[in-house]
Design a protein around this nucleic acid. Structure first.
Length: 304
DNA sequence: GACCAGGTGGCCT
DNA sequence: AGGCCACATGGT
């Protein structure tokens, strides 16, 4: 089935902005997995708004439209969040080191860093522009909890590998797609922390074991958590061993679609420093998490 | 072979 | 409340 998207939708950025670790890319086609569903999706060459998906209209409406957060207007949010007035804080950011002018190459080859001084708002505006096309996926809360527990002190390729291994080992094949489901708490009922260590999870293994146990014995109930306001949801998630502020906020944002939450990791922490030291994200209210995500992408792709 | 990665919990002032 | 530190492992 072919679809025309009117709003922001850049598959490269959606996949590569550090929110999702279960996508694959092959021959121009992206694959996403949600619970028992697998979607292959590709942008039609030369037609930026046209996409071809492997599912029919029914599955798109029932599953994937929600997964891709298609009921939210991202271009409107971008317009509302740029050009606003923040306190004037000057910061030096590395300037466009992706260009290939001879003089810049010379500077960087001698270890020097060309910098320019801009305001925090200019920095944020550039980040939003660079991240245009990102959408915050509505992923499975349990999968987000485990994934972001695993994510701590790992880089993104390592997270992808660990999550993939976890699915291959304790999930199950989905039809004949070659993809695997993410293991449910029941799938981990008889899996020990030692078993999980064998996957290379290191000190995170008992955290994953503990999270599964909390769901199995009813102390963690995702249907109940859905009903809680942001702050209470956040505190409940913080009760899980190995879940601190950052992971709890990631689960709120990516698993419960709480876009007012803005996780602070090492990259966002650097961005906050560039903005003068005060966290600028909460001021964006319900869009805080979305702006944060644009900035996270921008920090990792400064040349765009 | 350093250094770092979408951090957290515990212990110390 | 805030500053250190160990923690397991793999990517660059």
């Amino acid at each position: 089935m072919d679809i025309l998207f009117e709003d922001d939708f850049d598959l490269n950025k959606i996949a590569d902005c550090g929110q999702c670790f279960r996508w694959e890319f092959q021959n121009g086609v992206y694959r996403f997995v949600y619970r028992e569903y697998v979607l292959d999706i590709q942008q039609m060459p030369g037609l930026p708004d046209h996409f071809r998906v492997s599912c029919g209209a029914r599955e798109w409406e029932d599953i994937w439209k929600n997964y891709f957060d298609m009921n939210r207007n991202y271009s409107k949010i971008r317009n509302r969040c740029t050009g606003t007035q923040l306190p004037l804080v000057l910061s030096s950011v590395p300037s466009d080191n992706g260009n290939r002018s001879a003089s810049n190459q010379e500077i960087s080859s001698h270890g020097g860093n060309a910098c320019e001084v801009i305001t925090a708002q200019t920095f944020l505006d550039r980040a939003v522009k660079a991240g245009t096309g990102i959408r915050i996926l509505r992923q499975d809360p349990w999968e987000m909890l485990i994934t972001f527990i695993i994510s701590q002190r790992k880089n993104i390729p390592a997270i992808r590998k660990a999550v993939q291994l976890l699915a291959q080992t304790y999930g199950h094949p989905i039809g004949d797609t070659g993809s695997f489901s993410f293991p449910l708490p029941e799938d981990l009922r008889d899996v020990t922390a030692e078993n999980l260590r064998e996957l290379g999870l290191g000190y995170r293994a008992p955290y994953v074991r503990c999270a599964a146990q909390r769901v199995l014995d009813g102390r963690l109930n995702f249907d109940e958590l859905q009903k809680l306001p942001d702050e209470e949801l956040f505190s409940e998630l913080m009760q899980v061993e190995g879940v601190g502020k950052k992971v709890a906020n990631c689960v709120c944002l990516f698993g419960f679609s709480r876009t007012a939450r803005s996780p602070v990791d090492v990259w966002i922490s650097r961005a906050i420093d560039l903005c003068g030291g005060a966290d600028p994200f909460p001021a964006f209210g319900d869009a805080a998490g979305i702006v944060q995500q644009y900035v996270f992408y921008f920090m990792k792709h400064p040349q765009r």
